[in-house]
Nucleic acid binder design. Sequence first.
DNA 1: CACTAGTGCAA
DNA 2: TATTGCACTAGTG
Length: 450
Amino acid sequence: MGDKKSADKIFEVEQKLLSNYSCEDADVTFRLYKILENRLANTKPEYIAKKIEFPLIHVLLDMEKTGVNINAFTLFELSKLMENELNSLVKKIYLNAGEEFNINSTQQLQQILFNKLKLNPIRKTKTGFSTDAQSLEQLRGEHPIIDLLSEYREIAKLKSTYVDALPKLMNPTTKRVHTTFNQTVASTGRLSSLNPNLQNIPVRGELGKEIRKAFIPKPNNVLICADYNQIELRIMASICKDPNLMFAFNNDIDIHTRTAELIFNLPSDRISPDMRRKAKEVNFGILYGIGAFGLKNRLQISQSQAKEIIDNYFITFPNVKLFMENMIVFAQQHGYSETILGRRRYLKNINSQNKTLRQFEERVAINMPIQGTAADMIKIAMINIFNEFNLRNLKSKMILQVHDELIFDTVKTEIEIVKEIVKDKMENALLLDVPIKASIGIGNNWLEAH
DNA sequence: CACTAGTGCAA
DNA sequence: TATTGCACTAGTG
């Protein structure tokens, strides 16, 4: 268990009781296994279990035991800078509000913004008016307090969640941070990470970058970071075999620029950065089953313009449209959605009369084969990399997985061989109908390596 | 202390 | 009304 409290509490139970409970737990599990193993025999889920999930346990154990080195000193210095900045912002915010209040309280903040300062609410939440970053962005220029709040939020978030929290989670013995990877919570087959979550370390913004810099290798080592390029779009291309998508990946063309060319019907030299950005949002949105309403909000355009973009997308990539429809029909008929390897996610509301529930699971039915196949693929790569490292007696260590990215604490003499093994195992974990590409970075901290 | 709500970080 | 997660603070019971 990753939860220290629940792990400790169990020893408060009387020993005889605990013993009986533990034996019963093992006994019932084993009896269930005897029944279920026959039902699982020669199925794809059995393959997932035996060839992926069970071998992966050893890999994850090794990663958790190894842990990650962080520079607590730089985080401590950063914390002091942030503290000063926050103090100064708090004073200015109180001055602009005309009173002192708890800035971290959304209730009190709503009172200040929408009652006292008479700003126009952007949108509602269950309990009142939203004060989130998007709403504040809309209110920019309406009052000087808005920019101060946005800056306060950013710094307060990063300070409490990362800068102050991470050093406290260093193991006193190893002086490293040991996350727990949860293998069984994400319904798509992804891993999750907790105590601390090392899969959501900031990377954007100046402060975010400073935090990434605090993740460092062992003394005299380097960090190597390997990430899949456009893995989910490649998987979708391979599943639906759309000619335009396949062509782009087979010829190593920038997919977002190519998408912009096709949906805006312009040559590549007339694609502006803003058009590429829009196409990128469309590409990601498609993977999640976005609609015109969602795209309108993301791109800050009219809904009719959003609809036109989406319509153009499906004219350009007709097999993507078919793929989406096919995934929904499969889920309706089988009651689950599955990855290329047959990892299942059951969808009990796929035929529901409730439109909201049904449409949600229709999007899930589209996303699961993509996100889940990417998860299967990187897990296979991890197992193969782990085995190859052991075979060659390498001292370098795989230390983190962030969904499409692997990080290695690497002995300098092993840099070339690690690069070679990692790239090969990642790119060849699953053979698809489009090439799979992984790019490798190296550095003295996570920011540099990424 | 357990729980929800709002918010925001990552892929 | 775009997917998957985890964690922080405030506030309630």
